[in-house]
Design a protein around this nucleic acid. Structure first.
Lengths: 179, 179
DNA sequence: GGTGACATGTAACGTGTTACATGATTTC
DNA sequence: GAAATCATGTAACACGTTACATGTCACC
């Protein structure tokens, strides 16, 4: 449910052809969201029908051959992005979905994402606490762990570290969203 | 392509019913891998046919009603886990896939995951460097950034922090896998 | 004239998600 | 005896992935 919106936001940043989008999703955008060209063409077709985007360029050479089609976001598409960003149901694990929303804020302007970020912070704090509790309960005597236990502990420590790092980031970002 | 293997590893840890598995995938396992009960039953059916697992309990009350079916991993299933773990094509973004593999190492024993972790470390180092390059190029004068640029920078910093944290974790885990 | 990048699509398949469905056992 | 939990499953749909398919343009 996020791919079409990721595409819309990319198009808001710069009107592009499907091919262009596919390349951007392989590069900068691709670091936090993936989409193949088949997916992109499928979504562009749907969004055309829904009136979210329009073709502006259509540099058709002369024959019936498909030549570069440049897509642009229509007001309805922009409104849809705002609606989607503000439907505050980002999943705890859907960190990248939040990054897409941030990208929307960068291109559209303040969208009130601070409330959602605070919600996510609370969820991640709770999860971190769960991990720390498990650590206390299962891995408290740091020595005397079997190999299997050490590996399990390593998995847990990965979770702890990742939550801590995410929280530190969120604390840094929050002031930016409070306007 | 990883869900059946996540299930197999869960079953190696403890033979269970589909219902049991579903609950575990909502709790401990669920922190890094998700699967609904429908998915689990579907996969259990397939794995039965492939001879990877067998039903041992089948506590059928008396009527034709479905009662607790306990699944156990067969040698072929265990071999499949080892094969899958050692096919070293974990994706850079598929961090959680590597966590499942670690869990397999915890339950089966050393599987030579150090080589793959080193491969991943190299990929993450390269990605981190890419991010740092972008930081240098686009956000060098820390002041004089528009709001939009600050938000974009925040997204980038999220990537940087996440890579650094992952790398620190990997450095810590690596010695454990070198046996 | 051949290779590689540009550019757009269709079709088939696998997996994950949502909704529906049924019945047994335990607890209040 | 009603409600919650245990327990297993089917069906339809949405989405992502892989493979296939076609044709243009620029460059050597």
């Amino acid at each position: 449910m996020s791919t079409p919106h990721a595409i819309l936001i990319s198009l808001l940043e710069r009107p592009s052809s499907g091919y262009d989008l596919a390349r951007r999703f392989d590069r900068s955008m691709g670091y936090f969201w993936r989409a193949t060209h088949q997916q992109i063409y499928r979504e562009l077709g749907r969004m055309l029908q829904q009136g979210w985007v329009a073709v502006i360029g259509e540099t058709t050479g002369e024959a019936a051959t498909p030549r570069k089609k440049v897509y642009q976001v229509l007001p309805a598409g922009r409104a849809e992005v705002v609606r989607w960003v503000q439907e505050t149901d980002t999943d705890v694990d859907g960190r990248n979905v939040f990054l897409i929303k941030l990208r929307a804020e960068a291109v559209i302007g303040p969208l009130g994402l601070d409330a959602e970020l605070e919600r996510l912070v609370a969820l991640h704090r709770a999860r971190l606490q769960t991990y720390l509790d498990i650590e206390q309960r299962d891995f408290s005597p740091a020595d005397a762990l079997t190999h299997a236990q050490q590996v399990q502990y390593a998995i847990l420590k990965g979770g702890i570290r990742s939550e801590q790092s995410w929280l530190a980031w969120a604390e840094e970002v929050l002031p930016l969203l409070k306007s």
